[in-house]
């Protein structure tokens, strides 16, 4: 049992490295491993390859990995904290809230690198609190919360479109932002969000036990000496940091945060201490593969990663739902 899980983790790790490699080698201009090595060894000799790698491929791969880590872990946390298997940054509207705040940031403070992730986090956090408040006030079922999330999502998406249409000077490709895409990433754009995602991810890894205890229900968690409200707030902040930072550079990537935790729950069980790192590994690979397929399948045209994700993730998620008869997960 334990050995099987260890092998699976090693496999996930290799899968991430493999997909990162593919992401670097393939694209509009394929580069072999030899060319990559040569480009780094002799910059002057291969200026095009070097620029292509450092300015396009590497940021893109890095952005993909961190997007996967951020959204999957945010998904695991939201599912645990809300005790709802259908929760994820996308389904409960956190992504949209964060996207809306990104639009506001682009409108109010164009060209400020720090403003976008900050607003994205605030948007994500406010939306999380809203949905959480609704769930608390209505004391409602899992499905109701998701429906509330869907409503909030479309409301905020309308907001995104409105801002974009009213302020034509906002420089962004709206359709790929709405679908979620990794094109046009630069190191400058990525540094702050990725650092924040990494920090939040490491914090989550340390708090896995607390997420488990929180998943036992408020009464039990209190009896075990946990400050339930405070701990929950910390988790909501962490998940908002992760989801918000991803949205700040990759747009509204859906499905990773829902589907990856689900797969990992089936593979590794519900222990958050295992679930968080494994979801991060699988999430990174999933985003990278979707992005790669989007670049390669219809070359020279490029599909945003989010569209591929929906094409692959949608049917797969339906399959999981049918298999689990409602997909109810009882605990973290």
């Amino acid at each position: 049992m334990k050995k099987k899980k260890l092998l699976l983790i090693i496999f996930l790790f290799l899968l991430l490295i493999f997909s990162a490699g593919l992401g670097i080698f393939f694209g509009s201009v394929p580069l072999g491993p030899g060319e990559v090595v040569r480009a780094f060894a002799d910059r002057e000799g291969n200026p095009t390859a070097f620029t292509l790698l450092t300015a396009v491929r590497l940021p893109r791969v890095m952005g993909g990995i961190f997007a996967g880590i951020g959204l999957s872990c945010a998904g695991v946390i939201l599912q645990g904290v809300m005790n709802n298997s259908l929760a994820s940054p996308n389904t409960i509207g956190v992504n949209s809230g964060s996207g809306f705040a990104v639009m506001i940031a682009l409108m109010l403070a164009p060209g400020k690198v720090w403003a976008v992730p900050l607003f994205a986090f605030l948007g994500a956090f406010l939306t999380t609190l809203t949905v959480f408040g609704l769930a608390f006030l209505a004391d409602s079922s899992r499905t109701t919360i998701v429906l509330a999330g869907v409503t909030i999502s479309s409301f905020l998406n309308a907001g995104i479109n409105t801002v974009k249409l009213l302020d034509a000077e906002i420089y962004m490709n709206l359709s790929s932002f709405m679908a979620g895409s990794l094109s046009g990433l630069t190191v400058r754009k990525l540094t702050l969000p990725c650092a924040l995602i990494l920090a939040a991810f490491l914090a989550c890894l340390c708090l896995g036990r607390a997420l488990n205890v929180l998943g036992l229900g408020d009464d039990v968690a209190r009896s075990l000496g946990m400050r339930v409200s405070l701990t929950r707030l910390v988790f909501l902040i962490l998940s908002s940091v992760m989801a918000g930072c991803v949205v700040s550079y990759a747009g509204l990537l859906g499905f990773v945060g829902l589907i990856v935790p689900h797969i990992c729950r089936q593979l590794f069980g519900n222990d958050a201490r295992l679930l968080l790192p494994c979801s991060a590994l699988l999430g990174g690979s999933f985003v990278l593969v979707c992005d790669l397929l989007g670049r390669v399948l219809f070359a020279p045209y490029e599909l945003p990663a989010g569209i591929l994700m929906a094409f692959i993730g949608g049917p797969f998620f339906l399959y999981l739902l049918l298999k689990k008869k409602g997909g109810r997960r009882v605990s973290a």
Binding site: N83, N212, G215, L216, G217, D219, V220, G269, N270, D271, R329, V330, S331, A332
Partner: peptide, 8 residues
Amino acid sequence: RTVIPSLP
């Protein structure tokens, strides 16, 4: 207990 954990 409202939650029956699916933990070992």
